[in-house]
C-alpha cells in the first residue's frame, strides 16, 4: 500500500499519467460522438469495437513508456538504492513496484470507464456483460504492456535506452510479429496449425481482440473449417488468459534477472 501511495503521488506530479489519461478520455468521447450519429441497431457493439480498435494504437505505447519511466525514476532519483539497502531484495521491490504501477494506471482508467457509462446510457441500451468483456480486454492490454514497460525500465541504464527498447517492442507487437506470421502463412497445414495458432495468440493485441469480438458475439466461430477448428484449439478467453500470464510472468522474471541498478540521465 505504501508503494501504491508513493506511486500515485509521483504520478500526480508528473505529466505522463495525465497525458495518457487525457488521450483515453478524448478518444473515447470523440468516438462516442461519432458513433452516436450512426442511427443503426446495436450501435453499442459498434462503439465498443471501434473503441478497442482505437486504443490498440495508444494503450501499448503509453503503458510501455509509463511502466518503464516509473521504474527508471527510482534509479534516477537514487531511491532504488535506498529501498534495496533496507531489507528489500530486487525481486521483492519489483513485485511491489509492479503492483503499484499497475494499480495507479488501472485505477483511473477503470474509474473513467465507469463514468463513461453515464453518457453511454443516453445513446444506447447498455449490455453490461458486453461492456465487462470490453473492459476486461482493455485491462489485459494495460497489464501486459505495463509489465513489459517495467521490464524495460528495469534493464535500461539511460532514458535513450528506454525510448529505443520501448519503440522496438511496440514495433514488434504492432507490426513485426504478425508480419513474420504472414510470411509463414502459406506453409501452415493441419500438422502445424496448433503451433501457428499458439504463436498467433502470443501477440496480446490479437488475443485481446479475438477474445473481445467472440465474447461480444460479433465474431462467430460457427461452421468452421477443419483447419480453423484446429487453429482455435482453445477458447479465445483461455488464449488471452495464457497470454497475459505468460507475458506478465516472463517480463517480471526477466526484469528481475537482468536488472541494472544504476541509471543516469
Amino acid at each position: 500500500m505504501h508503494y501504491v501511495w508513493k506511486e500515485w503521488k509521483e504520478n500526480l506530479k508528473g505529466k505522463g499519467l495525465w497525458l495518457s489519461f487525457a488521450i483515453i478520455v478524448l478518444v473515447s468521447i470523440s468516438l462516442l460522438v461519432r458513433s452516436s450519429s450512426l442511427s443503426i441497431d446495436k450501435g453499442f457493439y459498434v462503439l465498443l469495437i471501434n473503441l478497442f480498435d482505437a486504443f490498440v494504437y495508444f494503450i501499448p505505447i503509453l503503458c510501455l513508456f509509463l511502466g518503464a519511466f516509473a521504474l527508471f525514476q527510482e534509479k534516477e532519483q537514487k531511491t532504488l538504492i535506498m529501498l534495496l539497502t533496507r531489507r528489500d531484495s530486487f525481486p521483492s521491490f519489483l513485485f511491489k513496484k509492479s503492483i503499484a504501477v499497475q494499480s495507479v494506471l488501472l485505477g483511473p482508467m477503470i474509474l473513467w470507464f465507469f463514468l463513461y457509462v453515464i453518457p453511454l446510457k443516453f445513446f444506447y441500451q447498455i449490455e453490461w456483460s458486453a461492456y465487462g468483456f470490453y473492459l476486461l480486454s482493455v485491462i489485459c492490454l494495460v497489464l501486459v504492456f505495463t509489465q513489459i514497460g517495467i521490464f524495460v525500465g528495469s534493464i535500461s541504464r539511460t532514458r535513450m535506452q528506454i525510448v529505443g527498447f520501448t519503440i522496438a517492442i511496440w514495433f514488434y507487437f504492432f507490426f513485426l510479429h504478425d508480419f513474420i506470421l504472414l510470411s509463414f502463412l502459406p506453409d501452415v497445414s493441419y500438422e502445424n496449425v496448433k503451433l501457428f495458432s499458439s504463436l498467433y495468440f502470443l501477440n496480446p493485441l490479437q488475443a485481446a481482440r479475438m477474445f473481445l469480438e467472440s465474447s461480444l458475439g460479433v465474431y462467430s466461430f460457427e461452421h468452421m473449417s477443419k483447419l480453423l477448428q484446429s487453429f482455435m484449439w482453445m477458447k479465445p478467453g483461455l488464449f488471452l488468459l495464457g497470454n497475459v500470464i505468460l507475458l506478465v510472468l516472463l517480463s517480471f522474471v526477466c526484469g528481475a534477472a537482468f536488472h541494472r541498478k544504476e541509471g543516469s540521465e
Binding site: 504492432f174 504478425d178 502463412l185 502459406p186 498467433y200
Partner: peptide, 21 residues
Amino acid sequence: ELIEDQELTYLFLKSPATQIY
C-alpha cells in the same frame, strides 16, 4: 494470393502488419 491460398489470412486483415506486407 494469400487470401486465395490460405483461409487463415482473414484473421490478419485487421492487423497493421498487412499494410507493411
